[in-house]
Nucleic acid binder design. Structure first.
Lengths: 338, 338
DNA sequence: CTGAAAGCGCTTACAG
DNA sequence: CTGAAAGCGCTTACAG
């Protein structure tokens, strides 16, 4: 049925008729083929402009076998991870060519299947799959007809192409920063240990301490949950047992916010008495903390850009099996900078 | 060129050949037309299954004149508003039929134009435009060939279809809640007054107070910015001038968090001494506050559902000029519940 | 330089 | 019940 707002979209036939040429010539004129007389091209362009002609990408895609469309499949319901990745991917693909469409599977594998089918049915040229956590995930089932790049959360199949943040190195960087400030009574308070993100960051943090011939205060990493309330209760009991703590590496900015709050209440000055590093560099939390929070940034836009580059290359026939890691950067604010 | 991962997608022709029928019959069998013998249908189904045939939506769309695709154009870079709206829209369109693709214009009208062109070129059946703030926005330029629904942020053209949250009523609801708790020394601390959201909520709040023959403490609404730090400084100076404040309506959960923090520091018990209501019901902030924060919820999923319904109806030829308002709901937590 | 024709993958009257 | 044919809107060899 006809759309409410109007007139059926103009077609190349309309343009050709108005310009008084065949559709073949109109097509060539519009696509910059050079077997067209300048004046003819001009007439066609004017006609197209006048009718605000916009070529039907469906027809084009049908012919070309590629649609200039990429699907980004996410399960990140808050969009905290996937939107920056989407932006990075869009940037990498650039304006002129490829469009990225985002679908949300909400962590439901049935819905994921549905979206994959819908996207493939619409003949996207490739797929970027963004996980909601950094743990490796099963690859999309079935033999897919287009290349796939896994971002943020790698595929379990090491023949697939994956791009992730280097959480181990980030843990090391965070602790090295505290060490460089002269801190030596350092604790690592992190989130749910069932998350690879928690374990990886802890691994890096522990390695950095070990390299400095130190062990974490309390002799272990303190796993819990990704929440402010865990940050509060963890730091409270740690301070009671180890009043000499002088550095905290928190597994997330939420945890760090809880830590900062309790440090304030206990009268510990940050960063003078205790320096604090968070993780995620989530602006809403980090810049509004007292003091403002130093945090590790996963560089998600860059991750998205890289995912797009790898996908583009794969669409051209390239192969990139394995996991590529993107470095995280340290964003220094008041909580470690005085 | 051929995609790296493989074989060109199977076509109806492949299926028909394997089943030993014509493509016309294969098509009818697959689409449940009833002019097909049961055993033939069965053979075709098996063949399609075996080749994991997925019909080319481009070809279908070309024929049908509609693609079963809707574009959701957002400018909300954090996704806090647009992702819930996306989910609501997906739900409303249901599984079987329409897919929603999200594009991010990042508040840049050039990029918005680009995305609109890309979406229309791909022949979406309709467009949902989601703003980043509640202020009315200029309509998409040009005569579009598909219906458009504006969500969250209405179109300035009252002939367009818009769905928004009822911020005025929400302001009233929040204050009525405080009044019902017996509070009478109420302040409203809100965000940037250049935002319609701030002004609308303030209008509702003021009306509710007036209806109770009260004026806000300090005789005015306290506008500032959408941040915790503004919440902190605003409540601090208000408490100094008006120590008898017993209720706070904050224009956002971020502001409310700042308010709660200072109330704690000043030794005011919440909700016993001062009851606090926030706005947005942003789980990360509201559930981790001390005490947990009562907040107004804009029901964005419902807003998305309604936008999808209106768009669907418009695609069928219906018209719905004007602005439809979705009610916000009060989510009661400890900060007003004792 | 220009246009008639074939074809991308599908659906739908229309004959048989 | 089945299939040959036309056609959706476009592009691209191929003749002229």
């Amino acid at each position: 049925m006809a759309p409410a707002t109007g007139k059926r979209p103009t077609t190349l036939t309309d343009v050709a008729r108005l310009a008084g040429v065949s559709i073949a010539t109109a097509s060539k004129a519009l696509n910059g083929r050079n077997q067209v007389r300048a004046s003819t091209r001009e007439r066609v362009m004017v006609a197209a402009e006048q009718l605000s002609f916009s070529p039907n990408a469906l027809a084009r895609g049908l012919l070309a076998g590629r649609t200039g469309t990429v699907g980004l499949l996410t399960s990140d319901m808050e969009g905290r991870f996937s939107l920056p990745i989407l932006m990075g991917a869009e940037d990498a693909f650039g304006r002129g060519s490829v469009s990225v469409f985002l679908c949300d599977a909400r962590g439901d594998s049935f819905r994921e299947q549905y979206h994959v089918k819908a996207l493939l049915g619409r003949r996207v040229d490739g797929l970027i799959v963004v996980g909601s956590r950094t743990d490796a995930r099963p690859p999309l089932p079935g033999r897919l007809s287009v290349p796939v790049v896994y971002a943020y959360s790698p595929s379990l199949d090491d023949q697939d192409t994956s791009v992730i943040s280097d959480n181990v190195e980030a843990g090391r960087t965070a602790v090295d920063h505290l060490l460089a400030l002269g801190r030596s009574r350092i604790v690592h308070i992190s989130g749910d240990r069932t998350y690879a993100a928690a374990r990886d960051r802890a691994e890096g943090a522990t390695a950095a301490l070990r390299a400095a011939r130190l062990t974490p205060v309390g002799k272990k990493v303190h796993f819990g949950s990704w929440s402010e309330s865990w940050g509060r209760s963890a730091i409270a009991s740690l301070l009671a047992a180890h009043p000499d703590i002088d550095g905290v590496f928190a597994g997330s900015d939420q945890i760090a916010r809880g830590v900062l709050e309790v440090l304030r209440e206990k009268g510990r000055a940050v960063p003078e008495d205790v320096a604090v590093v968070g993780f995620d560099n989530w602006a809403v939390l980090a810049t509004q903390a007292r003091p403002q929070l130093t945090s590790m940034d996963m560089q998600l836009e860059q991750l998205g850009r890289r995912a797009a580059e790898l996908l583009f290359s794969a669409m051209e026939g390239g192969t990139h099996p394995g996991i590529e890691k993107i470095g995280c950067s340290l964003v220094i604010r008041e909580s470690t900078a005085g």
